[in-house]
Amino acid sequence: MVTQTHTTIPAIEPQAEPNLTYQPNVDICDLGAEVLLVADIPGARASGIDVTFEDGVLAVRAAVPPRELPGRTVRQEYGIGNYRRSFRLGDGFDASQISADYKKGVLTIHVPRLAAVRPRKVEVKTA
């Protein structure tokens, strides 16, 4: 905890970041018609996952309930906290068609491109 001793030093507001947050491991796949993001967020509840897309930035936030093990802790290798990560995808995506599903601790997000900017295969005609 930082104590404010001078007016020039801003105090850290603990309520702004109550818990540790972690960046999930994410795989990204560009399938042409859509971009697929696959994020590992084990332990989260589907109802606690928040996916937003604004100004070309896809943001993922996931609340993870405390993972308390009974008894005395012998080993702790992974952090306990919420997940948070954002990606700047840019323009050309159809925000209304973004879909996400959560299975086995993995969040899969489909971000479809707008039809106008999707890559199209052009048929070459012969005379």
Binding site: V38, D40, I41, P42, G43, R67, L69, P70, G71, R72, T73, V74, R75, Q76, E77, Y78, K104, G105, V106
Partner: peptide, 17 residues
């Protein structure tokens, strides 16, 4: 993660996907 109570040992592993 691993913890130990009086009669049990509890192990939790992150295995997403």
């Amino acid at each position: 993660d691993m913890s130990e109570s009086e009669k049990q040992i509890h192990v939790r592993a992150e295995l997403p996907g």
